[in-house]
């Protein structure tokens, strides 16, 4: 049996907030790029929300566009 892996399903997070930098920064790599679904195991629905949240956080300079 395959166990549930999606972080957001496991923690019952229905809405991903761009201000939640602690949560969404788990899903960016050291360069600041968004980690894909294959690696993160996030459901398609959550991944779409996550991508939006990360992009909003970048716009508001809470996360970097490019990190070195």
């Amino acid at each position: 049996m395959i166990t549930k892996q999606c972080y957001f399903s496991q923690n019952n997070i229905k809405h991903i907030d761009y201000k939640d930098v602690d949560v969404i920064s788990k899903f960016i790599n050291p360069h600041g790029r968004i980690i894909g679904r294959k690696r993160s195991g996030v459901t398609a629905k959550s991944q779409r929300q996550l991508a939006t949240a990360i992009k909003r956080a970048r716009f508001m300079a809470l996360l970097p566009y490019v990190a070195n």
């Binding site: 939640d20 716009f59 508001m60």
Partner: peptide, 17 residues
């Protein structure tokens, strides 16, 4: 300096902080 307006839901959406 910068702003963002988004549509959201009434309930609390913050988890981490």
């Amino acid at each position: 300096l910068r702003y963002i307006i988004i549509t959201t839901v009434r309930e609390n959406t913050l988890v981490g902080s």
